[in-house]
Write a protein that binds this DNA or RNA. Structure first.
Lengths: 184, 184
DNA sequence: AGATAGTCGTTGCGAACGCAACTACCTTGA
DNA sequence: TCAAGGTAGTTGCGTTCGCAACGACTATCT
């Protein structure tokens, strides 16, 4: 059971029959959402029991852990995580309550603030990251070949870059789809 | 700006340097999450202004719209959407308040309930779905070739099936990774 | 038939989020 | 120098969600 999760093709009798091409795209984005949601769910479960961290907290922490100096501006962190400024504020509040992160004032811009990993936060991540990676390996073992993983990564990167490029650009010219500079 | 959204490789100086292979997988899942989040955000914005629907409501409604009879058991709907039973209850509550859906009792199992599209709900979806598809086409136009889209779909399907198969199986034997029957 | 266990859906509760409004600060230009 | 406008981050408020507990019903077993 638990199959036919998504519309695997519309029923011919339905009054809402959709063209096959349209349907394919609908299915693809459905798969994207389901994959992300499924992965998130599995990872969150394990992350919770391993380190007592939500997926969201882990996302913030790993970006700090992987930044030289282990600190990042709040705005930078908000941009990197898919979180609104207010959402990030609360998230950092929680991490600060848990003594994993501290806020540091920014000397050059006194409006700004850094979120910085504490010693304890670093220790937690030093343990949590390898576990997380191991879990990921275990989870993805045998699903995709190395080639397929590379392909998937490349396609997703293309998609993501396009989506966010379009978003940034809308301020200037919504009609120009691919002018925005991308990384690398 | 708005680039380097995700860790595009760890800094060599970082104390938390991670093996390159591990890093790649971390990046891939990061891309998966970001793509889904980005797409969700863009679609939601448009969906909201076009039909006054949240992405979540649309997800429920489209599954009803594409089912013969335009009705589905609550539990079925909960399984199809990535929503807990309680989450689905509230969602259907909202849709019922909006007169897009009605609950119908299930004669064969008097515990159960159907969620069924109302006339108005069907009318809304008859208009919303083509718009949504058009938006999707516009959004994805020129990002991926047809081949790439097919490849992406196939890879995502593999991934999703594996994730959910593992989830279901855990109840029986967590060590057996690919016994669960899949669709098609 | 009657007791027990399991399933379907709903509700109380607390957690997390986004939006809009706000404060504090920086920047630009007269 | 000082005013006007923009930016960084926080907070009030409303919304949505999942978990756990519950009531209603069904299935199973004796």
């Amino acid at each position: 059971m638990a199959d036919h999760r998504i519309h695997e093709g519309p029923q011919p009798g339905s009054a809402l029959t959709i063209g096959a091409r349209d349907d394919r795209r609908l299915t693809t984005v459905g798969l994207l959402f389901e994959s992300a949601a499924g992965l998130r769910q599995v990872l969150e479960r394990r992350l919770e029991s391993n380190a007592g961290l939500s997926n969201q907290s882990f996302d913030v922490l790993i970006r700090l852990a992987r930044t030289p100096g282990n600190r990042l501006r709040m705005s930078e962190l908000a941009a990197q995580t898919t979180l609104s400024p207010s959402g990030l504020t609360r998230s950092v509040d929680r991490l600060e309550d848990a003594s994993l992160v501290v806020r540091e004032i920014c000397p050059e811009d006194r409006r700004g603030a850094f979120a910085a990993l504490t010693m304890q936060g670093k220790a937690v991540m030093d343990e949590a990251i390898p576990r997380h990676v191991a879990h990921l390996d275990e989870l993805l073992q045998g699903v995709l070949t190395l080639d397929e993983e590379h392909t998937l990564e490349a396609l997703l990167r293309k998609l993501r870059d396009h989506l966010f490029a379009g978003e940034v650009q809308c301020a200037f010219d919504p009609a120009a789809p691919d002018v925005c500079p991308t990384e690398q």
